[in-house]
Design a protein around this nucleic acid. Sequence first.
RNA 1: GGGCCCGUGGCUUAGCCAGGAUAAAGCACCGGCCUUCUAAGCCGGGGAUCGCGGGUUCGAAUCCCGCCGGGUCCGCCA
Length: 565
Amino acid sequence: MYREFKREVESLLKLALEEASYECSSLELEQSEHADISSRVAFTLATRYRKSPDSIASDIVRHICIPSTDQTLIADVVAMGPYINFYVNDTFLNATLQRIIEGTTRRKDTRDIKIIVEHTSANPDGPLHIGHLRNAIIGDALARVLVRSGYRVETHYYVNDMGRQVAVAVWGASRFGLSTEKKGDHAVVDAYIAANRLLESEAKYQSEVETLMQRYEKGDVEVMKQYEVVVQRCLAGIKASLQRLNIKHDHFIFESRFVRSGDVERIIEELKQKGDIKYEGSAVMLRLEGIEKELVIQRTDGTSLYTTRDLAYHRWKSERCDRMIDVFGKDHELVSQQLREALILLDVKVLPEFVIFEFVSLPSGSLSTRAGRYISADELMDKIEARAYEEVDKRRGDLSAAKKREIARIVGIGALRYDMVKVSPDKHIMFDLEGALDIEKKGAPFIQYAHARACSILRAASERGITASESADLDLLRANSEVALIKKLSMFEYMVDNAAYELKLHPVARYARELAESFNIFYKDCPVLNTSEELREARLVLVECTKRILGDVLSVLGIEAPEEM
RNA sequence: GGGCCCGUGGCUUAGCCAGGAUAAAGCACCGGCCUUCUAAGCCGGGGAUCGCGGGUUCGAAUCCCGCCGGGUCCGCCA
């Protein structure tokens, strides 16, 4: 509803500026603690028209005419010094609640734009670790935000099955076997680590790995079968981990398909024609506009490279969507620029947009699957759920063990997901396990708790045979904490649209926390069940609306909303 | 060496792109609040020359230049 309010303010302000004959390019509207929306346009005009900002502001306000219809959402506009402050009216507050109750805030497929979001895409050589988790959680939440904002979204996991790493894992599996006891990804990583150790000490095995890669690229049936077993077992494990996190990809795209289909070959030929090419022996390098480092597109032995296969994948994607977004770690930044430039060269119309996030490192140093220096996502989830269980057990001894486990799962995974999206992606994260286990008070559990409280009130009401009624008199909701809460509720769609536009999630995480906070203050201030009948009906509507939006904002972040905790 | 990112109370961050109203939160710390819908809560308090130095501006955490500290990339790896 905030969006509608802002639009009305924009049109009124624009009109007033015309009538007062001021010209400016921007209305300079901003959210403010002093008003529901505020314009500082008077500052800009002051320089040009050589008048004091204060007098310009009051001049503009004199020209603003708030319509007297019952459609308007604006109660008042005042000049506070140089600022022009707008305030919402009762229509706005009531309409906010009505729209939530009617469910008209949902905007499914309203944009008719299809976006492919690629995320996670960890090599199938072992389990996911914290670094992959940041990628997966950002990617998944981004996809959810985009869906909620009205886009059609498809999520991809790009499987690098042709790289050296996987070849090493396959080689290791054939030499050491794969544990049948362990979860697939953990079984594969054992073989992978053992293989790396052996390869480091005895160089003679290197050629065996290379042979394996060449045979796989050529489509050797026997080698393909070997790969199939290893990759599928590993992916099965990875999928299971992702499922625990509430993450599911629509498609797993194997890079090998682009080699086998001849697409990679075609790309290389086209680049040779269109690009600034340099040969070094039989290797082919491509010079790209504005990038110092040239890109190798074909190796001396004629086999393909990751970037070339990725080019084929992106061109293929571009024919299937209107926009594509790749979630990449910071280490892929240069690659992403090369990718983009090469795609332009290939005349691809839909270019990838990149969401780049900074690294996650351990106090002991950077992460390395190869060296076995990582905390697996599974281990982390186990620990965090166990920690959450202690907390639930302490507070809710009355519940069954199964119920407590369920709540611990929701709270633990929620806390993990929230931690990953609450900060800007370009902030480096030093991962500290103890810190993560110490479930932050104002993180996901805080928001989930507010949701559980809302549910608890509604449950108690329905036990007494009272439900949120449509005939409730919403004009009764005018206590400070009630108004503050309704205003927060009105911001939800606006926040989501903004996040979808900026491709940034942390403002949504922040909003979720603020909404929970507003509800907690209301909860303290305003008894719902224990008050007059009219007020009770109205407050139940507010509680119902808050429960829905809390549930919605959590769901946009991929976090479950418990009914009790 | 070059590119990119980060540097805001003891700790973790928001605000920076589109400069303006007392620099905003959380954790930690101190003090209050459970005979009323879950205290994973609420209320109050102390604590920051926004890394440093210049510049632009009526006005700079925000823009520009130069430093300093930290990270990362610069493979015929992915």
